[in-house]
Amino acid sequence: MTYESNVHNKDYKLALDAFKIILQASNEKTKEGFRSRARDLVEEIYTSGFVPTFFYIFSKAGLEDKNKMDSFITFLSSALRDSPNGKLEEKEDASYRAYLFIILFYLSKEEIINNTILDNLNNVDGQLGLINEFYAKAPIISARLRTYLIAIKRLAEALI
């Protein structure tokens, strides 16, 4: 097997893992919202760039609310420790949180960003650090993320 197809297989597997977690954690309405997110955000990342689109998703995810932020961080870190628990509640912004989870799950599993950054998501310094981190690593992220997100899109279109 070539190096490239190896990498892609790994991306598909991660997509499957992440997608399963989202399916389990969301209700019907969130799933439907997530399907639309998965369908058009890949294209948006392509045209507007990863960093702008990421922070658009971040802002739409309603994480200014402290409770939502806390439950999101708990959800994310439990999933990264391979024992996902917690639910994404039923609001409109839940589908954006789900997509945010999809992206952060990949970046963390592939060790493109480290977990200390994710622990600091809830404070301003951490978020500022995230902007800098993403700009520094933009070439790697853009190159790697697309296959995975297209896999997510296909899964969403097939299963929701």
């Binding site: 760039g49 702008p52 922070f55 802002s59």
Partner: peptide, 17 residues
């Protein structure tokens, strides 16, 4: 516009700079 969108979407972060 896409660069400005980062500041717009993360306004609370940039205000605390």
């Amino acid at each position: 516009l896409s660069t400005t969108s980062i500041i717009f979407n993360m306004l609370n972060v940039f205000m605390s700079e």
